[in-house]
């Protein structure tokens, strides 16, 4: 089983992206299963096949236990963690389908040994091959310091998630082209030295020259923090992201069949 785990800050466009994926998968005849793991997400642009709100909702927990939105959210995800088999049964009943998992935006849920982290590890152990898709609002790339801020928070999730991750700059269609920097510069980062120069020119960051250098070093050494511009309304943009996700979680290799079978057949 293969799937994509859609993560990112609140308002980054996770649910909109999931809705866009369902449209494209419907058109390309790819069987899929949408799963909403955000118990606070009650206005979605798509109808999820599996919804955590069938089990528990944030509003109910807030009313019954007198918790605030944070405590209620953690309680909901803990409840999901205690009932992981419920989720697994739903998935296994649709074992041939590609999973689209819409996640909550709260970063603390993904921390090592965090509530959602445990659920994800459970799914992986159960044979679900997942790839994280991290969405960040492209409007934060209006200047280099904000871009580095986005890159650092992305790295924070990469370190804790410990799984293949594709990073996207969502709402790319809203990005102003007449700004100082174009989206291409940030999404491909062909010239990290140029980024470093720009960072050192930013007022207030002059004293962090060494830190700027170290961060840019990580970006260039690992080539992990490259961002793909994403506009949900743009089919080409969506297809590009889907290709990257399929390559990251291994789904693109399934068309060749099971390698072990290929070897056995060649011997015969």
């Amino acid at each position: 089983m293969y799937g994509v785990l859609v993560i990112g800050a609140p308002g980054a466009g996770k649910s909109t992206f999931c809705a866009g994926l369902t449209d494209i998968f419907s058109q390309t005849k790819r069987p899929f299963l949408t799963i909403n793991l955000d118990p606070a997400n009650d206005t979605m642009a798509y109808a999820p096949d599996v919804n955590i709100t069938e089990m528990i909702t944030v509003n109910d927990v807030m009313d019954r236990l007198g918790l605030g939105p944070n405590g209620a959210l953690k309680y909901c995800i803990e409840t999901l963690g205690a009932n992981c088999n419920w989720l697994l049964q739903k998935i296994e009943a649709n074992h041939k389908k590609y999973l689209i998992i819409d996640c909550p935006g709260q970063l603390e849920l993904y921390k090592s040994e965090g509530e959602l982290w445990k659920v994800i590890r459970f799914l992986e152990k159960s044979g679900v091959r997942l790839c994280a898709l991290h969405l960040a609002d492209s409007l934060y790339c209006s200047d280099p310091s904000k871009f580095i801020s986005v890159a650092l928070s992305t790295l924070a999730t990469m370190v804790t998630m410990e799984m293949p991750q594709v990073n996207c700059l969502s709402k790319a269609d809203l990005f102003s082209e007449d700004g100082t920097y174009d989206l291409e510069f940030f999404s491909h980062l062909p010239d990290v030295n140029r980024l470093l120069d720009l960072l050192n020119e930013v007022p207030g960051l002059e004293k962090y020259r060494k830190l700027n250098e170290a961060i840019c070093g990580v970006i260039s050494d690992f080539d992990l923090v490259s961002f793909v511009p994403l506009a949900v309304e743009n089919k080409e943009s969506m297809m590009k992201v889907i290709q990257m996700v399929d390559a990251a979680n291994g789904f693109s290799l399934t068309e060749q069949g099971d390698i072990r079978e290929l070897i056995l057949n060649s011997k015969a």
């Binding site: 921390k111 965090g114 904000k146 580095i148 928070s153 924070a156 370190v159 804790t160 960051l205």
Partner: peptide
Amino acid sequence: ARATNPTTFMSNMLYACSILYRTK
């Protein structure tokens, strides 16, 4: 209490660094 895990600690510090770059 929750930062005793080095990965969580690193994640926390990366996020702190991210905020530093945003606010300056």
